[in-house]
Design a protein around this nucleic acid. Structure first.
Lengths: 244, 244
DNA sequence: TCCCGGCTGTAAGGTGTCTTACGCGGTCAC
DNA sequence: GTGACCGCGTAAGACACCTTACAGCCGGGA
């Protein structure tokens, strides 16, 4: 994958929209993105060396809490989990990210070591950039900087909605909300609903809804009984009559 | 708080002309905001007409969930609470903001009605700007746009830390963490610690830590017993030996 | 001054969920 | 194949916290 491809993917990531067919969409992104509307081919070329692509299999630790490497990541393909660890060693997953998302953006503004770690959930293709390089690029282009702000604003809204759930909803409802959100972001249409192919174990789900592996097993079984979720092999399906 | 009250307050916020001495201070106030931290005096002067100051007493509903007015707010003085409401009517306070913070920034990127409401906790002086005006300003100044991103990034980190607490910490610990955070952000030094002058009722605290008024009363009493908090009249004091 | 409404303290009972414990089936490496 | 490991299902007991209920307090307005 060329650096140019990487750069294009990065701006695609900032727009938070997902390609259906990659080859067609490279051109599509060029036309859509404000930056590239006025930019010459050479202008794009100038920045291609700032980006690197890399492939990572399920389970890879992208970065660890405490790391001080200042790198920003863009998800091109696959899924990544952002995790905090509580003082007594429990994991809290604060975000599940897919194609089009970016992460590690704290290091754009903050020199402190990371407070989270990031793990690959489904085999991923990532694009990376050094914080200083990206910062310089953003400093020259307000539209891009605003895109970053927009992405963060959406993530904040997401986090607040999760806080609401954690504060007052029961575990069963939290799990259902989680799967509805995953369905809308990562669901693939199957007959009768949306299948979630993100490979989350019950322990992973527990870390997302603030519960334990055992209660998650129990509550999922209850939800399936009630017809609010279905199982398709190992994957969870949200019935379409449940999608508001 | 009634919807009518909300509308009246919004209207007042847009219309009210402040006394001349406030206008003179406007630039000074703007300068205190994180957004304009590195901006030049002239730069602020140029855009000063985009902003309006307005005073709001404790209890004022700054904006309500469902409002579609696209306005961004800057806190010059006082304290403001950002609140979401759960389907069954419970309040979840997702942020407590003080001097230098901004809020309502969703409307910069998003045309949907607000999902939160904002209430004045301590008599506040706010500065308002129409979303479109501010957006135009940010589009011309990458440094300002990056400041917005930075503020959002910090708020996100904050939200994630709260999620961690809500997920696995006991109510007592959550309250203690809350007061430590408030102390570091809004605390005024008194002998033996930091006093928190933000006027939060136990019900308010409950909405911050995802609990009930009664358990908050109980747990605060326990914390005071253990010497982990002190009371100074109605205010809470965090003993300095508790500040890590 | 007195009343009223909002804030706080306290306690009994109920329950959602965590903890602990164990067994079972799949999958992968050897 | 066969063991080791991981992910899953289930169940009894404990407990943190919510619910419900009521009473005292303080401050502000009539």
């Amino acid at each position: 994958m060329s650096g140019l491809g990487a750069a294009i993917e990065m701006f695609a990531a900032l727009r938070k929209e997902r390609p259906v067919d990659e080859d067609v969409n490279k051109v599509w992104y060029l036309r859509q993105n404000r930056l590239f509307r006025e930019a010459t081919e050479e202008g794009i070329m100038q920045h291609e060396h700032l980006f690197t692509m890399c492939e990572m299999p399920r389970g890879t630790l992208v970065f660890d809490a405490g790391d001080s490497a200042r790198i920003i990541y863009f998800v091109k393909r696959g899924t990544v989990r952002i995790v905090r660890e509580t003082p007594d060693g429990k994991d809290v997953t604060v975000a599940i990210l897919g194609a089009g998302d970016l992460f590690g953006e704290e290091s754009l503004f903050d020199r402190r070591a990371r407070t989270t770690h990031a793990v690959v959930v489904d085999d991923a293709l990532l694009c990376t950039s050094r914080a200083d390089d990206l910062f310089a690029l953003l400093s020259r282009d307000p539209a891009l900087a605003l895109n970053v702000a927009k992405v963060l604003s959406e993530r904040l809204d997401d986090a607040q909605s999760t806080m609401e759930d954690l504060a007052y909803a029961r575990v069963g409802d939290r799990i259902e909300h989680l799967y509805h959100k995953l369905a809308s972001e990562h669901g693939v249409p199957v007959k009768g609903g949306l299948r979630i192919d993100v490979r989350l174990t019950h322990a992973d789900v527990a870390s997302l809804v603030g519960s334990t592996r055992e209660t998650v097993s129990l509550e999922i079984a209850k939800l399936v009984d009630l017809g609010r979720l279905r199982l398709d092999g190992r994957a969870v399906v949200v019935p379409k009559e449940m999608l508001s």
